[in-house]
């Protein structure tokens, strides 16, 4: 491993192509940390946005007019405003209103850090799309199939768990995956509130080493590969979940 790392130092000396995140242990750690922060932020947002989607879709079927209105208002607001401004609104406007807690150094620090706010904001943003996706999936399950389960004595919960959800899930998978891929790309916005994700760490490295070109190309490739792997995996999953003889 070290031999390979050292080779990049030689590359820099010989050609001027400077990739410090490969030969320099400190920069390497920063890049690896950034990569895992991006992954962690994506996973947290993925979990909560799907949760918001499921709950929202359920609430949208509510018989209370105002519940439906509020869910619709939420969806429209988050779909039709820039996610970056949403992030600022959460982090600066709401974040400053929350109480502070005493930190390890005896100072005051906000109760929620930038990572938490990025996770909240992006989850709400992606969740607004997921609500629509889940709702349409549930609506695509024919009433007659549900009725057949009812006639067999299934309870409401059993029907939801054994029939409606598995069918709806298969139907929405492509749209859901597409949204999740977008979510991973959107995590770069967290850069704006200094969450140390990949873009932020890359920025730190190019500030220290003045190697914007190399870092930029590396970043583009890194996201291309990351998103490419994700898309490929999702496609395989979609194929595996396909019901034979249908669709």
């Amino acid at each position: 491993m070290d031999v390979i790392f050292e080779w990049f130092r030689v590359l820099y000396d010989e050609t001027g192509i400077n990739l410090p995140f490969l030969y320099d242990a400190y920069d390497r750690n920063r890049m690896v940390d950034g990569f895992f922060t991006t992954i962690r932020l994506s996973l947290v947002c993925l979990f909560f946005s799907v949760l918001i989607g499921v709950v929202g879709a359920w609430l949208q079927g509510s018989s209370f007019k105002w519940t439906r209105r509020i869910v619709n208002g939420y969806i429209q607001l988050f779909r039709n405003t820039p996610p970056l401004v949403q992030l600022y609104f959460f982090y600066f406007a709401i974040g400053t209103m929350l109480p502070t807690v005493e930190n390890d150094w005896g100072g005051q620090s906000p109760i929620l850090g930038s990572f938490a706010w990025a996770a909240i904001s992006l989850s709400f943003f992606a969740g607004a799309f997921n609500v629509e996706i889940f709702r349409s999936g549930i609506e695509a399950v024919p009433k007659s199939t549900v009725e057949a389960a009812e006639a067999l004595g299934f309870s409401r919960l059993q029907i939801y768990r054994d029939v409606t959800l598995p069918l709806a899930f298969r139907v929405v998978l492509p749209a859901l995956n597409n949204n999740l891929v977008n979510l991973v790309k959107t995590t770069t916005l967290a850069y704006a509130i200094a969450v140390p994700e990949m873009l932020y760490e890359a920025n730190q490295i190019w500030s220290d080493n003045v190697n914007v070109t190399e870092m930029m190309i590396f970043l583009l490739l890194a996201y291309f590969v990351l998103v490419g792997i994700l898309v490929g995996g999702m496609n395989r999953w979609e194929r595996a979940m396909r019901i034979p003889g249908f669709g």
């Binding site: 790309k185 995590t187 916005l189 873009l199």
Partner: peptide, 11 residues
């Protein structure tokens, strides 16, 4: 398409 918009903007 795979690259985040913000990264392309930096680029």
């Amino acid at each position: 398409r795979n690259a985040p918009w913000l990264v392309l903007l930096f680029f």
